[in-house]
Each structure stands twice: as C-alpha cells, then as structure tokens.
Simulated scan of single mutants.
Amino acid sequence: MYIIGIAGGSGSGKTTLVDGILSRIPREEIAILPQDAYYRDNSDIPLEDRFKLNYDHPDSIEWELMSKDIESLKSGQTINCPTYSYLTCARLEETIPIAPKNILLVEGILIYTSQMICDQLDMKIFLEVPADQRLTRIIQRDMDSRGRTALEVIDRYYKTVRPMHEEFIEPSRQQADMLVMGGGLNEKAAEFIAAAILEKLK
C-alpha cells in the first residue's frame, strides 16, 4: 500500500483535489481516509458548549485511533471508519467500512501536525492558497453544508481558524514533499499526482 497525505488550510480545496485525482484513477484502486472523521467524541458535553470548542487545534483529533486504522489498512484489514456530524459536533453511531486498497489517500488540515501520522505517509502534499481566497471558500462551504450564517463563520475564522492556521498548519507545510500552488483548483497538479499514482500501480 502506498499512502499519500493531502493537507492544507481550511478552504484550500483538498476535497476538490481528491475528486480531481479520483476522476483520473480507477476508483477500485484507492481508499480515502478523512481526518475529520476522527474528531474526538464530545457528545458527553452540552451542545452549546460543543459549539465553543476549538476544532482547528491538533488536540481535537483522536490521532491514536487514526494511526491505528492506517496500520490496520496497511496490514490488509478492513476498518470501521468513524463518522462525525458538523451540525451536532459529535461522533455518530454509524461507521463506514473501508477496505484496504493499493493506494490510500489521507486528507485533512492538521495531519502534518502529527508526527505519528507523518511517519506513516509515503508522500506528503500541501495545498498553498492565499488566506483571502480560503476565507471566501470557508464562508460559502459553512453556509451551504454546516448550517452557519456568514457572521458566525467570519467570527469563528478570526477567533480560531486563522490563529490555528498560523500556529500549527502553516508551519506543518515544512513536512510536505510537494506544494500545490492554487490548491484544489490546480488541475495540472491533479493530473501530475494521478500520473504518479498510475505509475505506482504498475
């Protein structure tokens, strides 16, 4: 199994890049493991308090479980990937079975802040996108799919998203083997990465 990490700040287009790669590779050859599935379960605290938690800090992720699942996939075992609701800020009861494939894409904003995860990756890609462009995408995404108003998104951005990006995510780009300028909208990067994957599959 060849494991590729795709990281970058919130709104940098990780999902778009992954979709661009998947459109060029036989789907049966690739498994995807999203960092967001591994947010710690906070269902034991009141909903109002959950909304106040900092979900852009590395401590918000259950790295030990994520690392264990990566190792299980590497050893040929199917895992039960957790699921998480952005609306309730809690882990759901449902899990998603993920079978081992020749290629594993691990994606998330914080994955390079965990040395444990970095050590499991064979290739590390970081999406480089200016802050103003990322903010525009964050506002649109969170309003469309996470039930937030523009004011709520902007308030959260300046309180946690931007500070955490500057403290943790931006420095973690030093771990990357490859920088993708323009993020997920860089179709040439998707073509290049897909070509590299196809070469590995040979």
Rank of each mutant, 00 (worst) to 15 (best):
I4W: 05
G8P: 02
G20D: 00
L22A: 08
P26C: 03
P26L: 00
E29W: 01
Q35H: 05
Q35G: 07
I45N: 00
L47P: 10
E48D: 14
D49P: 02
K52P: 01
L53M: 02
Y55L: 01
H57T: 03
H57F: 04
D59Y: 06
M66H: 05
E71A: 07
S72M: 11
K74E: 09
Q77R: 14
T78F: 02
P82V: 03
L87N: 10
C89Y: 15
R91T: 11
T95F: 06
P97K: 11
N102M: 08
L105W: 02
L105Y: 07
V106Y: 02
I109K: 10
L110S: 08
L110T: 07
S114G: 08
S114T: 06
M116Q: 14
D119P: 02
L121A: 01
M123Y: 10
E128H: 06
V129G: 10
P130R: 06
A131N: 01
D132T: 05
L135W: 00
D142C: 04
S145A: 00
G147V: 12
L151K: 15
L151V: 11
V153R: 07
K159C: 01
K159N: 13
P163S: 10
E166Y: 14
E166A: 12
F168D: 14
Q175K: 15
L179D: 03
L179G: 01
V180I: 15
G182E: 12
L185E: 15
N186G: 12
F192P: 02
A196W: 12
A196D: 09
L198F: 03
